[in-house]
Nucleic acid binder design. Sequence first.
DNA 1: CTGCGATGCTACGCGGAACGTAGTAGGGAG
DNA 2: CTCCCTACTACGTTCCGCGTAGCATCGCAG
Lengths: 104, 104
Amino acid sequence: MAGLADLGRFSEPALHILISLAAGPKHGYAMQDDIGALTGARPGPGTLYGAIRRLEEHAYIEALPEQERRKPYRLTDAGRAALGVELQRMRSLAATGLRRLAVA
Amino acid sequence: MAGLADLGRFSEPALHILISLAAGPKHGYAMQDDIGALTGARPGPGTLYGAIRRLEEHAYIEALPEQERRKPYRLTDAGRAALGVELQRMRSLAATGLRRLAVA
DNA sequence: CTGCGATGCTACGCGGAACGTAGTAGGGAG
DNA sequence: CTCCCTACTACGTTCCGCGTAGCATCGCAG
């Protein structure tokens, strides 16, 4: 096992964070903006930093040296792999659902 | 607004139920099997019937006449519409994520 | 006819993720 | 000096996810 589903039940915020970091290292506030642009909903601090802490515990992301009260994070190899698996699962499920909708 | 996100924070089980019902009306136990086949994880009764209740409250699904201690459900038009929107959002997000992974 | 498994659902309780709000603090604009 | 943006920490509430247990019906083997 050991997929994204280990993070609580599944965790949409966590997925958004990983996607955000897939474009390069970012600190928390920048992720909020990126996720807001991506999904239309900007997560609050409680949601964001809670999910970050869990992702770090699972070694899907790691902190870079702090600079000027900013805490940048980047994807680990494990995080990159987990994200890839999860995204393909997602795409496949979406395709199946859309196919079912089209037929019925 | 008025999307799938109204169902609690996000609700993956709810999405699976809608996809399952997109293939035609089903009762609870059949959904469990269908979702199990679809995702690899068969939801327990607590998860399933809890999500069903919430979906029914939001009028995304509706109960059909009970027969032989089975309670079949089917998608409403609103549910079908919400599912379509959600699936496209999903597919788009997955595509964005995979693109970012490929580049980096 | 009697266990016994599969089917189908209800009831219940716990843990923890999601989310908002408030608070702290530096830095730049005016 | 004041305001607003940046950036994060701390805290509390809500309620979803999920498992367990219980109850009832049906079919089938022995």
